[in-house]
Amino acid sequence: MKLLGLHHVSILTGNAEKNFEFYTKVLGMRLVKKTVNQDNTSSYHLFYGDAEGNPGSEITFFDMPSLGRTYPGVRSISSTSLRVKSTDSLHYWVERLERLNIAHEDIMKRANRDTLAFRDYDGTNVILVADNGEEGVAAGVPWDKTDIPVEHAIIGLGPVMLTVTAAEPTIKVLTDVMGFRHVGSYPSLAGDFPAIEVFATGEGGAGAEVHLETRPDLPKERPGRGSIHHVAFRIPNEEEFKYWTKRIQESGLMNSGEVERYYFKALYFREPNHILFELSTDTPGFAADEPLESLGERLALPPFLEPKREQIEAQLRPLDLEL
């Protein structure tokens, strides 16, 4: 049994309204779920994805208005990426970002793919990655209710970058425990440091990769606004989830055990460099409690929180999102 690829990436935001503006109005993604942080129901949890909220397309945010800035460093997920169809799409995005006065890097190669890097409102490092017909995990369904041409729309998650002091302990977990395979490397973009190593799972491709950067010169990250909290990997169903739960427990890694999120089952653990990983099922998905055509339009609560809706809504700050 293999993990299928990336499921979602979760990030901390200091302002849900500006975050919503950036990911829907600038990047043209769909708000597929407006819910609460199930571990702290006084704050919102926003999920953006493709037109259908498919696993592998979702970038999520915990709304934490009191957060300070992030101090970058090791023991971190230092960047996330989003897939687009082609290099032509990257040129479209260069023009769009410049028109909106959003700073960006030049288009450059990462892992032999054309990429375009920039930062969101909170300072999260985001990289657009061009598929250019590459084989691997299938892309998602572009959201066509924006001003972005469908052929240039975001179509899923791309590789995450892990930044660590020493790579070998993380490599051991990725390969020996999680079944990833080493598929290549590319030069560090930060100077004279070890090459960035590329690991893939499932069918491979941009939607199934982890990139591992070794930076012994950096301090430990101090997370804040824009910090990437965790990365989740896809398991197709509950039957295989049981297999992976047992495998992680038998590995000796400290873990959460099964956590019921309603939209998916989850298991959390930290690899040796203290980066938080999650394993999540594709099922039942975000249409479990809302029609596909109206995803994200109301505050959605899983059934085990629904009896507390009045109490939860009373402690949430007002959140005005113009869909």
Rank of each mutant, 00 (worst) to 15 (best):
R298C: 02
A166K: 13
G56H: 03
E271C: 12
S78Y: 12
D144A: 13
I59C: 08
N40Q: 08
A111N: 15
I155W: 00
E297I: 03
L157Q: 06
M29K: 13
E151S: 08
W244N: 08
N101I: 06
D217P: 00
D50R: 03
N273C: 14
P159D: 10
T87V: 05
E168V: 10
P318H: 07
N101E: 14
N255D: 06
P159Y: 14
A153W: 01
Q315M: 15
A166T: 14
A138D: 14
S227Y: 00
V150F: 04
P318A: 02
F233L: 15
T170V: 08
L6Q: 12
T245E: 13
K172S: 14
M1Y: 12
G5A: 08
L90P: 12
L97Q: 08
V183P: 10
G226I: 00
S86H: 06
K18M: 07
S81R: 05
S10L: 07
N40I: 02
R119F: 06
L276D: 02
E21C: 11
E168N: 06
G14D: 07
R222T: 15
D192S: 00
H8Y: 02
H45D: 10
A314H: 11
K18N: 09
S81T: 11
F199P: 02
P65T: 03
T245P: 02
I196H: 02
P72T: 02
F269Y: 14
T41M: 04
R270P: 03
T80Y: 09
A206N: 15
G133R: 02
I59W: 01
M29E: 11
L212I: 03
E238S: 09
R234F: 12
L218S: 09
Y268R: 08
E21P: 04
L267S: 12
P302N: 02
R83T: 13
I171F: 05
A200D: 10
P318V: 05
R96V: 05
Y186I: 04
K33T: 05
T124G: 09
E17V: 10
L212V: 03
P236T: 03
S256T: 15
S81W: 02
K145L: 14
F286N: 08
E58K: 10
L299V: 10
W93H: 05
T60N: 09
K109Q: 11
Q249V: 01
E52S: 11
F47C: 15
L299P: 05
S43L: 01
D106M: 03
P72G: 05
G179H: 04
F264G: 00
D131M: 11
T201F: 09
S251F: 09
R69Q: 10
T13L: 00
F47I: 11
L305A: 06
Y268K: 05
N255Y: 07
V9R: 00
R110P: 00
V84F: 11
I11W: 00
